[in-house]
Design a protein around this nucleic acid. Sequence first.
DNA 1: ACTTTTTTTGAATGACTATTCAAATTAATG
DNA 2: CATTAATTTGAATAGTCATTCAAAAAAAGT
Lengths: 190, 190
Amino acid sequence: MARAQFNRNDVIDKSLELFWNNGFSASSMKQVVEATGLKPGSIYLAFGNKEALFREALERYAEKGIEQIRTTLDNSTSVGIGLCTVLENMVQEATRTNYCSCFLVKTQLELAGGENELYAFASAKLSEIEALYQSYLEKEFSTTLSQHRATSLMLHIFGMRVYGYQQGSADRIRQGLREGLPWLPWPESV
Amino acid sequence: MARAQFNRNDVIDKSLELFWNNGFSASSMKQVVEATGLKPGSIYLAFGNKEALFREALERYAEKGIEQIRTTLDNSTSVGIGLCTVLENMVQEATRTNYCSCFLVKTQLELAGGENELYAFASAKLSEIEALYQSYLEKEFSTTLSQHRATSLMLHIFGMRVYGYQQGSADRIRQGLREGLPWLPWPESV
DNA sequence: ACTTTTTTTGAATGACTATTCAAATTAATG
DNA sequence: CATTAATTTGAATAGTCATTCAAAAAAAGT
C-alpha cells in the first residue's frame, strides 16, 4: 500500500498562509491546489473538504500562538514583565506591512453572521487564551482582579489586531496600551 | 423617460444588512437580487457593480455611526459622561444575540489580505472616528493626553467589537472597560 | 399622439466553485 | 514475484459566480 508522498504539516502550513491571508470564503480550493502542489483528489482524501482543512489550519495556528504565550510568560521574571514582552511582540507584528490580523479573530468575525462550526472553534480558542492569561495573573493578583485584568488585556489585544489601519502607528499603539494597562511594568523611556 | 421605481436608500439598506452579515465575499449578487427584489440589470444600472454597491452600503453605515457618536456627545453634560453612554450602547449592541460586529471593522479585516479600495475606505473611516473622539477629548484634556486616550478608546472599542464570543459577557466587558478606562466617570454601582 | 429617453426584464454568458471518481500508480505485505 | 491496499491523477460534474445585453415597458417632453 502506497504511503502519502507529502508532508502533512507542510500542506497545512501552506494552506494556513492562504486561509489566513484571504479568509475562508475568498480562498478557493484551486488556490490550495496551487499553493500545496497536491492534486484535488489527494487533498480531499487526506483532509475531507475545505472546511476540515481550514479547521486544521486554524488549530495549528492556535496551538502555536498559545505555546508562544506560555513560553514567554514562563521565561519571564514576573508575569507583568512577561505580558509586556507579549504585548510588545504583538505591536511589532501588528505594524508590519502586510499584517493581516490574527487568524482566529479574522475567522471569528468573518463567520459571525450565521452559526458555524469554524466560528465556534475560533471563539472557543479565544476564550481559552483569555483563561490562560487569567491563570497567569492569578499568580500575582486576586481571582476577581485577575479576571478583570484578563478581560482588559483581551480588549487591548483585540484592539491591536484591528488597529492595523494606520501606517507607522506602533508608537501610537504603545501609548494607548500604557494608557489602558497602567498596572503593567512598562519600560521607563518611550 | 422612465424614472427608477425603487427607493435607492431602501435598496442600500437591504444590501447593507446582507453585506454586514455575510461580508463581501460570502454575499452573492443573487442574494442581493432576492433581498432587494430588483432584477440584476436594474442593480447594475443603478450601482455599477458589487464593489460599488458594497461601498455605498459601507458609506451609509459609517455616516450613521458617526452621526450617532456626534449626537450622543453633543447632548451630554460632559464629554466623559457622553463617552460612557456611547460605550454602554456598544456593550449592549455587542452582547445582543446575532451581533455580527462592526461593519467597518469586519470589512477592514476581511479585505486586509490584498490591498483593496474597500479596505482603504474602511480604514480611512476608522481613522476619522478616532480623530473625532480626539477632538471631543481636547475640550477637556491636553492635545497629547487626548491623543493617547483617543487611541486607548479605539483599542477598547475594537476589542468590544471582537469580544462577542461569550454569551452573557456584558458585565465582564463592562468590568474590562472600567479597568482600562479608569479616567471616565463611570456610574457608581455595578 | 408621437418621439425620446430611461428603466426593467430575465435569459444568456463564460468563468469559477467545491467535490467526485474511475483508472493508473505506488509501495508494502505474503 | 504476486497480491493487496493505499495513494495519485486530472478530467468531469453540477452548481454558482458576477456581469451583460437586446428587447420590452414605462414615463417624460413635444
